[in-house]
Simulated assay, not measured.
Amino acid sequence: MRLVLAHQNPIRRAKLSARFERVDRLDLLAVACNLTELYTAVEHLVPDVVLLSREMASAPEFEVMRALFSALHVACILLEGDNDVRPVSPLTDGLPSLNEAADAEELVVGVRAAASRPLPRFGREGTVRLPVTEATMPAEPRSRTPTFRDGAIVLIGASTGGVDALLTVLGQFPVSCPPTFVVQHTGGRFVSSLISLLDRSVAAKVTAATDGEEARIGHIYLAPGDQAHLALSQKGKLITALDPGAHYSGHRPSVDVLFRSAVPRGRRVAAALLTGMGRDGAVGLKALSAAGAETIVQDEATSVVYGMPRVAWEMGAARQKLPIDRIGPALLAACAVTTSRVGH
């Protein structure tokens, strides 16, 4: 059984590493001291099981890690010490745990049990979607390729639980999708990892937005970190802007900033606010709706945290409330030449 170990405590990490190396039936491939090292190890080595401390798994950035595990079919076990604090986090729901003091036989049994069952998905009724690869991606017949209106764009905002939600929504987009702009509340250090994960999992090209770039069809642009807001030019060519302004709605980048920047484009916009804590994006979504945009929120049943979508829905900002697997088609339908809408 191929393993990768991750622990933030150097003494405990060294002890665990020594113990795992002494167990003949377990092959320890790599040891990581933080989530960045862990992401690199998992992406390149693709172990059967990852064992990491519960504390590391409780960090917001772990959401990207968990999505990577799911995409690569890697099992995950949380390591716990007898005196560890066990923080409550939706990021660790459903994951098996193992005491760090377990003997060799308990380690083997625990690892094999974790490897034998799939990683639990986020949400309560989330749709499982396998990553898109060149081998698994179906051909896009010309007769079925949707025709999108000139100037149509898609905006998406998300927070807690958003990585898995984005994989579902963007995984339904064709190679020639409208220019799409995404703000996902993720730790700044992990944005490049998120972009890499999305790009390998969906048909369109996923990239970090740059200041002054003209947006293109078939491209999905993410805010590149936590040092600037992602916004759009308000008239003329569709140009991305990175605004290093203060936090807005408690965040940088802020969904509200992105949404409000697109208000002048009105009916050419289709926007969705996905799972997340707080209220970022609700006011901007309402402004877009008033300008004639198609506005959608994720429903409670498939949200990991029904915060941002709830606030937007209760203030009348959204025209539709849909489960996560219907949001992608609804956004595309809103951008298509036809006037039909998905979800009504």
Rank of each mutant, 00 (worst) to 15 (best):
V182N: 06
T186P: 00
I195P: 01
S176N: 15
P174S: 04
G188M: 12
F181S: 01
D199R: 12
F181M: 15
R200D: 02
Q184H: 08
G187I: 05
F190D: 01
S176H: 12
G188L: 07
F173H: 05
L197R: 09
R200K: 15
S196E: 09
S176L: 14
Q172F: 03
V183P: 03
V175H: 09
F181N: 02
F190C: 02
R189S: 10
Q172L: 15
S201A: 14
P179K: 09
G171P: 13
S176K: 06
S201D: 03
P179Q: 12
D199W: 08
F181G: 04
V182D: 01
H185C: 07
F173W: 14
S193C: 15
F173P: 08
G171C: 11
F181L: 14
S193F: 12
V183K: 04
F190K: 01
V202C: 14
G187R: 07
L194I: 01
P174V: 10
S192P: 02
S193M: 10
P178W: 08
S201E: 03
L194R: 08
V202K: 07
F173L: 13
P174F: 01
G188A: 12
T186K: 00
C177M: 14
V175R: 15
P178K: 09
F181K: 04
C177W: 10
C177E: 09
F190P: 00
P178C: 07
L198E: 00
P178I: 12
Q184L: 10
S196Q: 13
H185I: 04
L198R: 02
V183H: 04
L197E: 09
S201Y: 09
C177D: 02
Q184E: 11
G187N: 13
Q172P: 05
G188F: 11
I195Y: 05
P174Y: 03
R200F: 00
T186A: 05
T186W: 04
S192D: 14
D199G: 01
R200A: 14
C177L: 08
R189H: 07
D199F: 10
I195H: 04
R200W: 02
D199H: 15
S193N: 15
V183W: 03
R200L: 01
P179G: 06
Q172I: 04
Q172R: 14
L194T: 01
F190L: 08
T186M: 15
G187F: 08
F190E: 00
S201W: 11
S192V: 10
L197T: 09
V191G: 00
V202Y: 06
S196R: 15
H185R: 11
R189G: 11
